[in-house]
Write a protein that binds this DNA or RNA. Sequence first.
DNA 1: CGTGTAAGGAATTCTGACACG
DNA 2: CGTGTAAGGAATTCTGACACG
Lengths: 104, 104
Amino acid sequence: MPNDKTSYKDKKVISIGIISELTGLSERKIRYYEERKLIFPERTGRGTRKYSFSDVETLMEIANQIEDGVQTYEIKKEMSKKQKRDERNKMIRGQINAQFNIRK
Amino acid sequence: MPNDKTSYKDKKVISIGIISELTGLSERKIRYYEERKLIFPERTGRGTRKYSFSDVETLMEIANQIEDGVQTYEIKKEMSKKQKRDERNKMIRGQINAQFNIRK
DNA sequence: CGTGTAAGGAATTCTGACACG
DNA sequence: CGTGTAAGGAATTCTGACACG
């Protein structure tokens, strides 16, 4: 069973109007956070933004931090730190799995 | 841990254009299958249809059957049979869990 | 810096209908 | 029966800009 996760959570299929309802954020805010590189929707053939459920979660976290007075630049820094942690963990997990499979 | 599943799979958030891309079906077909009660999108405040990932799967199954020459009426009958099976199974599972929890 | 808003255009979606078969 | 299409309207989304602070 390789990396066949194709999780629904990460599929970019939701338009900005629905995202606005789901998160309670204005479309203006959502587009602005994209401008600040905090979120990365895909685009349809003719340019409308598409988001995933993961993006909804990310947006909620962003909104919380903004409420606490954190600036978008700081949020971005935190997010990239977190991503590096996640990548390291993922790599370690991969190595453990490799060990395990070799033994088997 | 009650029934807190809120699965992304069943959340109705995808517009018909995206569904059309995802399934390869025309919007006409998708709306027609709704007319024949094979699929049940929700509506936004102002009337546009919203579908879930489950709906995508259902639509693929419908498309396969249509290709095999099955009529929408037959498909609907099969679907309601299947749903009854699923409900029975769910109920049995519920009872097993109840037993289990009482013993604990 | 973060967000609201009015502006104008382009793309999306909706319904009811006619067509073919 | 299942599906395409043209029709007209309504709602959505997009971008760039001005505003306030």
